[in-house]
Nucleic acid binder design. Structure first.
Length: 494
RNA sequence: CGAGGUGUGGCUAAGUUUGGUAUAGCGCUGCGUUCGGGACGCAGAGGUCGCAGGUUCAAAUCCUGUCACCUCGACCA
């Protein structure tokens, strides 16, 4: 996609300055505005609609596995946050505190949730009595606050929207199964809906969540070769249960601690979509997640009958019901195309650029000449491929184009990831790649945190994950030369 | 939080060195002509120069402080 010519001057090219490109796209696609509070963004309709589609589809998938939604308070008393030692140490540096109620200082200060493990645990301690109460499979959609030092829209904001699932199980095995199940659910969602390939794996102890026994992660590669952690799933074992005394009575009338998990995805995914699929003309949205999939652009719209025809096409596409499952999945709710008409009095060229900056997957051009010929022109956002189609077969062609676009976007992203995934057998090789070739680096590791630390100091690469799909690249650790335990994927991360 | 940079109508900037009536382009509003890759004409609206102090007859311009944003590091979804 790199060789397409740049048609929009107001977007910095990726090659020139990737960070600036990202900021430009976020702005030109009207996804967010900055607010008066650093790190807290105004998510505008175009951005929020993407989040709503992410929510809709994830929520559906969660519920298919038995998850129920709940809502917890936004404030956590300090004493509650303190209960699990590792957890509080992990989050203390970045919580925001509420110290006053009106004019009165509070007896105990409360933090604005940076995550809700402690609230769920406190609740579960009373809520769970018997093995019959298990498992508890709860999720909440909310915003959380972490006082980050540097912020960027979607990628790192102080307040962000997410979902956090919190489950409690009778056995360790069940908790582990749920942890992995949710990670795969996330990964499948990214690949099937966001057309974003991810690497599934486990975090090293250094990188795992504060208070977790094990953290699983999906790691995606952005267009500039940097890694983005896109979703995590944690197995807590019975650590939190012990700290919060969450016990149930088993079948033999014995008290047992529950085993817990938590898992989350955030508005950061929108940043990932931008950086995986975007190009120099702006955003490119995968059809399945795009709030508007088709923009109808009338040409010479003041001419008799043109606008009318455009509205007619819109209504037809909205009402379309396909017999095929693929088309149903494309529309996500099986309810026709998500389509709009750009009937502003801007020139056609302007509208084309708008549609491209906003990442709308397909546009339909319809003008007097087309109407006379009973046809229209459809143009794909990602390839700019133009197709003249007769009006009778518009629906059919659109389904085809959207499906093709969805799968080709995934394929393209996959190729990019593969092309930027390197293998290092020696430390020299590793350092060379780290310095000159942005991307993932596969290399063996002995399991010692000291090596992980040294690699980070030497190269600024961090361990992204220990992939489920292991390969034996060498017998010895890339860093210390001792016997290797696992293959790790390394990279520079956002 | 450390280093560097930038703040002037909605956006992008000129003006700051050498204090002296706030400028331009784009966008916006109205009317008309246009319309297949960011059209054009005419007429209009809109800023007190990030914010707060200070120096001065006079501050966008000089001084002090402060805030925000961007880039690069350290910490994180």
């Amino acid at each position: 996609m790199a060789e397409e010519k740049k048609l929009v001057e107001s977007i910095t090219s990726m090659e020139e300055d990737f960070a600036q490109w990202y900021t430009d796209v976020v702005r030109k696609a009207e996804l967010v505005d900055y607010s008066n509070v650093k790190g807290c963004m105004v998510i505008k309709p175009a951005g929020y609609a993407i989040w709503e589609n992410i929510q809709k589809e994830l929520d559906r998938r969660f519920k298919e596995t038995g998850v129920e939604n709940v809502y917890m308070p936004m404030l956590i008393p300090e004493s509650l946050l303190q209960k699990e030692k590792d957890h509080v140490e992990g989050f203390a540096p970045e919580v925001a505190w509420v110290t006053h109620g009106g004019l009165e200082p509070l007896q105990e200060r409360m933090c604005i949730r940076p995550t809700s493990e402690t609230l769920f645990c406190d609740f579960y301690a009373n809520d769970i009595q018997s093995y019959r109460d298990l498992p508890r499979l709860y999720n909440q959609w909310c915003s959380v606050m972490r006082w980050e030092k540097t912020t960027r829209p979607f990628l790192r904001s102080r307040e962000f929207l997410w979902q956090e699932g919190h489950t409690a199980h009778a056995t360790e095995e069940e908790a582990e199964a749920r942890t992995e199940q949710m990670l795969h659910l996330y990964a499948d969602f990214c690949e099937e809906v966001l057309a974003m390939p991810v690497i599934r794996g486990r975090k090293t102890d250094k990188e795992k969540f504060a208070g977790a026994n094990a953290t699983y992660t999906i790691e995606a590669l952005m267009h500039d070769g940097k890694a983005l952690q896109s979703g995590t799933s944690h197995n807590f074992g019975d650590g939190f249960a012990k700290a919060f005394e969450i016990q149930y009575t088993d079948k033999d009338n014995k008290l047992q601690y529950v085993h817990q998990t938590s898992w989350g995805m955030t508005t950061r995914l929108i940043g990932a979509i931008i950086m995986v699929h975007g190009d120099d003309s702006g955003l490119v949205l995968p059809p399945r997640i795009a709030p508007v999939q088709v923009m109808v652009i009338p040409i010479q719209q003041k001419k008799e009958g043109v606008l009318e025809k455009a509205y007619e096409l819109r209504d037809r596409l909205k009402a379309f019901r396909s017999g095929t499952a693929e088309a149903g999945a494309m529309a996500m709710a099986g309810s026709g195309f998500r389509v709009k008409v750009d009937d502003t009095d801007k020139s056609p060229g302007w509208k084309f650029s708008e549609q491209e900056m906003r990442g709308i997957p397909v546009r339909v051009e319809i003008g007097p000449k087309d109407i006379a010929n009973g046809q229209c022109v459809i143009v794909r956002r990602d390839t700019r491929e133009k197709l003249v189609v007769s009006l009778e077969e518009l629906e059919e062609k659109l389904v085809e184009v959207l499906e093709t676009m969805q799968s080709e976007m995934l394929e393209r992203a996959r190729k990019h990831q593969q092309a930027h995934t390197y293998t290092a057998a020696t430390y020299k090789e590793f350092q060379d790649i780290a310095e000159h070739k942005p991307g993932f680096i596969k290399a063996m590791w002995c399991g010692d945190a000291a090596c992980e630390e040294k690699i980070k100091e030497d190269t600024t690469c961090t361990s992204r994950c220990m992939p489920f799909a292991q390969e034996e690249i060498a017998e010895t650790c890339i860093c210390c030369g001792k016997k290797a335990k696992t293959m790790v994927v390394w990279g520079k991360a956002y």
